[in-house]
Structure formats: structure tokens, C-alpha cells
Simulated scan of single mutants.
Amino acid sequence: MSGGVDSAVAAARARDAGHDVTGVHLALSRNPQTYRTGARGCCTLEDSRDARRAADVIGIPFYVWDMAEQFHEDVVDDFVAEYAAGRTPNPCLRCNEKIKFAAVLDRAVALGFDAVVTGHHARLGADGLLRRSVDLPKDQSYVLAVLTRAQLGRAVFPLGDSTKAQVREEAAARGLAVADKPDSHDICFIADGDTRGFLADRLGESPGDIVDGRTGAVLGRHGGAYAYTVGQRKGLDLRVPAPDGRPRYVLSITPTTNTVTVGPREDLAVDTVTAERPIWHGETTPVECEVQLRAHGEVARAVVTTDGDGLTARLRTPARGVAAGQAIVAYRPDPGGDIVLGSATITAGRMASPVAAHGA
């Protein structure tokens, strides 16, 4: 129970379904005062109190589990290391993978519980496969697609068939004080929302060149390549304007040379995406499907092939702003809700020949 409206209603629905429910709030900060207060994040002291009050109203036992050290190692340290390596991580995905459905689930099973219930907006079909929520703008299947079949077998998502508006209405009817609590957003462990400053404090200043991707000319300087991500347009502070006056975008980040490469928007286009560490639930590949390349991003048609520890997606239409470190999630359209076929961590995007990119 995070202290928000979704997990509170999920707990209440699980109790109403006849399950023996215990509410658990995760203490994830070594120093809770350093995590943001109010509604901009999660894991705050306020959230803990809100979760406890919700459990009291629902009528279930409530505990706080201290997982600060593991969260710091598996999520925060990973976040910093990924940026240092020139990638753009998704900490919410990593938290689901390493904390909520690994550490928490393992402890819950050891204590005799059958499953972990969360307030994620996603659905599980009778076949055990993950599906999108009916509320597509709130769908969270993208950050859950990293879960294995074994983890999904012990997961319960009671909110997948409801919209966020319906969840809030139900919370109010149940007398839950969090009914109108704003959704959390941004990164919970960055207290002031300044990701660049957070990384600079941990990685230090590391000046380098910003170069033109076509000519190799030095266009400016940066204080640390970790402050940039592929597709970024603002905050480049370039000394040399483009000859045609058009904006430039970050095309790539090279930690070995501490170089940020920029260019026009069309140079961001890729039609082949490679990824590593796939979690695959679908049929034998290659398979024609839809892929999502970032959280809340649009889907694209693609032919996906898995091969051992790798995954390759050949996009029917080129995509822009594909960043290493993000997840690629494959979906199969289905009348009962898009089915998650699998997920992998993006390693690179490139333009291939038309035959290679569009052959099934």
C-alpha cells in the first residue's frame, strides 16, 4: 500500500473478494526526510501515514517493511550506473522487477501468503498473460512487462477493469481519505525533481564536447554526458547555430569519449531496435506485433525476433528518440485487451536497409 488511492482500493477489493489481506507499506528511503513530500512522488512519511489510515478504514492489518538498503542497491545505484554508461533507465520498471515482485514477493511467500496485490492499472487473463488496462491513458503494463510467468502467477491486479475515475469514485464511497489524492509522478528518490543535479552530485562534473553528428564539428561543451538523453532538444546550450536555423537533437551519447552527438530531427529515425535480456511469454518468433519503446509512448507495428539473450524489432515505420536503457514491450492486439508478449532492455537503434527492416 503506497499511500495512494489505487493501492487502497485494490486492497479493499481483495478483502471484499474474500481473501485474507494484510496491508504492507514499503519504507524505501535511508532517510525519509530526503524523499519528496506532498503528491509529487511516493515513499514519503506522509504516504506511510495515508496507507495506515486506509488500512484502518478497510479493516485489515498493516505493517511497514524496511527495504531501503535493497531499494538503494537495486534501483538507485542502478539508475546512476545506467546514466553513467550513457543509457536512460526506467526506475519504476526496475522497482517492480527487483523490489515489488522479487524482494516483497519472496518475503510474502516465505511468510505463507499466496500472492501480492497491487494497484497497478493492468489485467491478467485466465491464461496468466498480462494485458493492458481498460483505462489506456493510465495503463501500466509497460512497467510490468519485465515480470516472469512465475511472478505473474502470484500477482493480482484488481483495478485493470476500471478507469481511474471509477477508482476515485469508489474510494470516496468507501470513505477513504485518499480518494482525491493526486497521482504521484516523477522519480520518487530525487527530492527536488532535479535529475541532472542528482546525477552530478554522485558522478561529479565531467566536461566534454557536444559534436555535430554529420560533420564532427564541436558545437559546444557539456558538464557531464549523463545529463543528456537521446531525443533531447532543450538545454543543449550550443555555441554554433545550425546553418538552416532548425533545432538540433541529441542523437547519441558515448561515455568512452565523453561525447554528446547532436543533429537534425530526421537523424533520430531508426527502423531496427536491438535489445537484451528478453522476458518472452508469446509464441515462437519472428512474430508480427506492436511494440512500445518508452513509457506512455505510441505503439508501432514491427516484426520481433528473439534469439537467446537478444531481441530484434524491425519497425514498419521508423521511430524517433529510441534510447538505450529503456524497455521495448511487445503486444499482440486482442479483443479482450492487448496481450503482453514480452519485454527487453533496448541496447541500440539504427537504420537498416528497406529489405532488412520490412521483411517478416
Rank of each mutant, 00 (worst) to 15 (best):
L147C: 07
L147V: 02
L147Y: 02
L147W: 00
T148L: 03
T148I: 04
T148G: 04
T148E: 04
R149H: 14
R149E: 03
A150I: 00
A150N: 12
A150H: 13
A150G: 08
A150K: 09
Q151R: 15
L152H: 04
L152Y: 02
L152M: 11
R154P: 00
A155Q: 01
A155L: 09
A155P: 02
A155W: 00
V156I: 14
V156R: 12
V156D: 03
F157N: 00
F157L: 15
F157P: 00
P158A: 11
P158C: 11
P158R: 01
L159V: 12
L159A: 04
L159Y: 03
L159K: 04
G160R: 02
G160K: 01
G160I: 11
D161L: 12
D161P: 07
T163I: 09
T163A: 06
K164P: 00
K164I: 02
K164A: 08
A165V: 11
Q166E: 15
Q166M: 11
Q166A: 14
Q166N: 06
V167E: 00
V167C: 05
R168K: 13
R168S: 07
R168D: 00
R168M: 08
R168A: 04
E169Q: 15
E169F: 13
E170S: 10
E170H: 14
A171Q: 05
A171K: 05
A172S: 14
A172V: 09
A172L: 13
A173Y: 11
A173E: 14
A173M: 12
A173P: 03
A173T: 13
G175N: 08
G175Y: 06
G175C: 07
G175E: 07
L176Y: 05
A177F: 06
V178A: 03
V178Q: 04
V178N: 01
V178M: 07
A179W: 13
K181I: 05
P182W: 10
D183Y: 05
D183M: 06
D183H: 06
S184L: 06
S184Q: 10
H185M: 09
H185E: 07
H185D: 08
D186S: 13
D186M: 09
D186R: 12
I187Y: 03
C188T: 10
